[in-house]
Design a protein around this nucleic acid. Structure first.
Lengths: 159, 159
DNA sequence: TTTACTGCAAATATTTTGCAATATC
DNA sequence: GATATTGCAAAATATTTGCAGTAAA
């Protein structure tokens, strides 16, 4: 509860810094969007966010939503994922346990997967001629439910 | 040269197996598309492939292209990437050294990054309730050219 | 007061779908 | 011959853009 509020305050501060540094205006729309992102569930898409904003009595246009999201991506308060489908999925990036993603190629459900060992292995890589900032690891395969279903139907792909 | 031909033959065979197993028809369009994918450069998008097909005197519709690509994805002869932009990028999956991707967030150029250690670390992970089939690791950051450019402009993001 | 930002609506880009014609099995 | 697949065009989806009005600095 309290912790959540503190996180929201911190990200608001970080956003302000970024906006100031880049000579962008501090509009109420931008802060309202950031707030909602750091209040609602972690994974979301633009349409869900749009609906949610309007339900919360803060009407914003899609144009503003996309505009603001770009800023949030730029200052790394939000991450963007495209799990192999058309729809982009976003999630907050500050104060979240960093995790990887397991994506079922049958039902398209996405599960978070935390593995500190992998995280370190990837982060500690020195790469020539490249300055890493963040990364995404998507593991595609079958969730248990779909694996069982396919096994029954003898449809398992030979590997 | 010869090797390239052999790869094309092998993937054609694999595709045939898959089509047979799934009771799909073996149309010339499908084989022509597979052939071109295993002839042209490794990374491509749908539009490029569409143009290339038509230049090669094998006219196919976009509908067929998308249809066939889905089959090729299903049987894992092709991989699909979405590097944070709208456009999907594809690449052949058979007989290629598996690699990761470095994506510059400034110029959006994509570089291949081979690292056997990481590859093994990821492949050897046992994950509960999930059967991994393949994976994608995208490392976002700045390529050297953009890093230098931004440094000059004092625009480097504080981390 | 200046001009960046917002909302709206239209435009763009990408992928999917319905349907009649065609070709595989 | 039955029907999966093709091409076409229209539809659906997702995102971007131009512009006039509004509000932050």
């Amino acid at each position: 509860m309290d912790k959540e509020n503190k996180v929201r305050e911190t990200v608001r501060q970080k956003f302000t810094e970024y906006l100031t540094a880049n000579k962008c205006r501090k509009t109420p729309e931008r802060y309202a969007i950031l707030d909602l992102i750091y209040t609602e569930q972690r994974h979301f898409d633009m349409d869900t966010l749009y609906e949610a904003m309007n339900e919360k009595n803060f009407r914003v246009s899609r144009a503003t939503l996309y505009n603001t999201m770009q800023l949030l991506l730029d200052c790394q308060l939000v991450l963007k994922h495209q799990f192999g489908r058309t729809l982009s999925v976003y999630e907050r990036a500050y104060n979240t346990d960093f995790h990887h993603h397991l994506i079922c190629t049958e039902c398209h459900k996405v599960r978070e997967y935390k593995d500190a060992e992998l995280k370190l292995a990837i982060r500690n890589k020195k790469i020539k001629q490249f300055t890493p900032v963040h990364y995404s690891l998507y593991i595609y395969g079958l969730c248990n439910i779909c694996a069982r279903k396919l096994k029954k139907e003898h449809k398992l792909i030979k590997t």
